[in-house]
């Protein structure tokens, strides 16, 4: 395993190791507004996907346009 991979594993392990000790400053029961569908990064996937396609085919820019998942920490 290359040095970069080792560093990446070590960094991820350190990050994960800290999980138990971090006290969330927004408690799970305080996330009702964040859990509201209107706060979603992608409320309707089929609409978002078509809209991305409309722009993608007419623009040179691509990538990092959402749709890659990721949650809101609402649960």
């Amino acid at each position: 395993m290359s040095r970069q991979k080792l560093l990446a594993v070590a960094a991820a392990a350190l990050l994960m190791g800290g999980c138990a000790s971090v006290d969330p400053w927004v408690k799970p029961y305080e996330r009702d507004r964040l859990a509201d569908p209107i706060m979603s990064f992608e409320r309707d996937p089929v609409i978002a996907s078509h809209r991305r396609h409309v722009f993608d085919v007419r623009e040179a820019a691509r990538g990092a346009a959402g749709g890659s998942g990721g949650g809101c920490g609402c649960n």
């Binding site: 560093l7 990446a8 594993v9 960094a11 994960m16 649960n75």
Partner: peptide, 20 residues
């Protein structure tokens, strides 16, 4: 390589915290 390594580390170190 770094992305693959981080994916591996995340999969191995999955803690049982709040559920997705």
């Amino acid at each position: 390589g770094a992305v693959v390594a981080i994916v591996l580390a995340l999969a191995l170190l999955t803690p049982t915290l709040s559920a997705q």
